[in-house]
Design a protein around this nucleic acid. Structure first.
Lengths: 195, 195
DNA sequence: TCAAGACTATACCGATCTGTATAGTGGCTC
DNA sequence: GAGCCACTATACAGATCGGTATAGTCTTGA
C-alpha cells in the first residue's frame, strides 16, 4: 500500500464516518472541514490534529471504502463454489447488496475521480488501484472457466459491471445491477459451452 | 426542453467555452467564476450580465454539450445503412471519436452528477435526459434487428456503453470503447441469428 | 496520584468564494 | 451623429474556504 494511513482515535473515527457520508452525498469539493467537524461533533482542531489536511481526510475516505468493499466482496465469494461461474455472478450480487445498502449515487471511486484532476493526487492511486483489483479479480475468476479467453471476458465483465454502477446511480432503468448479473451469467454459460 | 437558455453574445460564447473546458477538466465546484472570466478574457460583470448565476453557467455547459453530442451521434448514424446492426456499432464509433477528441476524463454528465446532490437542480434533468435519450436511441436501433428483445438488448448495450466511458476515463485497460464496440457487434449478430 | 494524550471551546489568519455596484469604452445601426 | 448594446476596469460586500493558535477539560493507565 503506497498511501499513508493515520491512527484512528475515537474522534477520528467519528470524523471519518461523517466525512464519508458527506463526501459521498454532496461531493468532495462541496463539503468543507467546518461542516465535517460539526456533523461529527468534533472541533476543527481535532480534525487537523488527526488528519493534518483535508486531502488526507479524502484519502482516508477512499482507502477505507476500498478496504471495506474488498472485504465485502471476498466475504460473498467465500460462500460460493470455487471454480464455478457462480463466483462471477456472486460479484454482481455483492455489488447489488452493497449499492442497495448505502450507495444510491453510484461508485464512490468514479465520483471522486470526477473531482480530482491531478494524477499525482494521493487519492488517484486508490481509485485506479481498486479498478485494477476488480479487473484482476474478474480475470482470476474467469480463468477457471474459460482460460484461453480470460482476459477478454474479464474486460467485458468489467464494462458491464461499471456500466451497471453508473446506471444505478443515474437511475437510467430499474435494477441495472440485476440486469448486469443476468448478462454476466449468460456470457459465461456461452463461454463454457465452447471450450 | 425544460431548461431556459440565454442569448449567446460573443463574450458569452467565449465564457462558455472556457467554462466548459475548466468544468470538465477540474470539476464544477473546483472552478470559480473569477477563473472562468480570466480564462475567457471577460469580466465578471459580463458573466453575470449574460448568465445571471454560476448555476446557469453550469446548465449552459451541460445543455450545450448534450446538444453537440446528440448532433455528433446523429451525424455518424446518417453515414450508415438504416436497419442494419452497423448503426448500433456506429454509436460506439461515434463515442470513440468523441472521447478521443477532447474527453479523456469520461462522460461529462456522469462526472457532473457526482457533484450535484439535489435532484431539483436544473442540471439534473439535462443529465438524466441525455441518458434516457441514449437508452431510447439504442432501443430504436435494435428494434429493426430484434424487435422482440429490443428493450432488453438496449439496456445491455447501455451498460456496455456506459462502462466503456468510465473505463476510458479511468484508463482501466487500453481502448475500452473499441472493446465495447466489438462486444456490441457480437451481441447483435447472435441476436439476429435466432429470430 | 500523576502524567500523557485525546478531546473541547473560541478566536483568529489570509485567501477565496459568489455576487454586485459604479463608471467608462468600443463598435454597430438607424 | 445619436443611441444602443456589448464590453472593460476596478472596487467591494458578505460569506466561507483551509488551516492555526491558545487555553482548558476529560479519561485512561501506571
Amino acid at each position: 500500500m503506497g498511501t499513508t494511513r493515520i491512527t484512528m482515535t475515537p474522534g477520528a473515527r467519528r470524523a471519518l464516518a461523517a466525512a464519508s457520508r458527506l463526501f459521498y452525498e454532496q461531493g468532495i469539493h462541496a463539503v468543507g472541514v467546518d461542516l465535517i467537524a460539526a456533523e461529527a461533533g468534533v472541533t476543527k482542531k481535532t480534525l487537523y490534529d488527526r488528519f493534518g489536511s483535508k486531502e488526507q481526510i479524502v484519502v482516508e475516505y477512499l482507502a477505507d471504502r476500498d478496504e471495506r468493499w474488498r472485504a465485502f466482496v471476498t466475504q460473498w465469494l467465500e460462500r460460493t463454489e470455487p471454480g464455478s461461474a457462480d463466483r462471477v455472478v456472486a460479484v454482481f450480487d455483492a455489488s447489488k447488496a452493497w449499492m442497495a445498502e448505502s450507495s444510491p449515487k453510484g461508485c464512490s471511486m468514479v465520483n471522486a475521480h470526477a473531482e480530482i484532476s491531478d494524477p499525482a493526487h494521493p487519492a488517484y492511486a486508490i481509485i485506479t488501484g481498486q479498478k485494477q483489483w476488480m479487473l484482476a479479480l474478474f480475470a482470476d475468476l474467469v480463468r477457471d472457466i474459460a482460460p484461453t479467453r480470460a482476459d477478454e471476458l474479464a474486460r467485458t465483465l468489467m464494462l458491464i459491471h461499471e456500466g451497471a454502477l453508473v446506471a444505478h446511480g443515474l437511475r437510467i432503468f430499474p435494477d441495472p445491477i440485476g440486469h448486469a448479473r443476468d448478462r454476466a451469467g449468460e456470457l459465461l454459460k456461452d463461454a463454457g459451452d465452447r471450450p
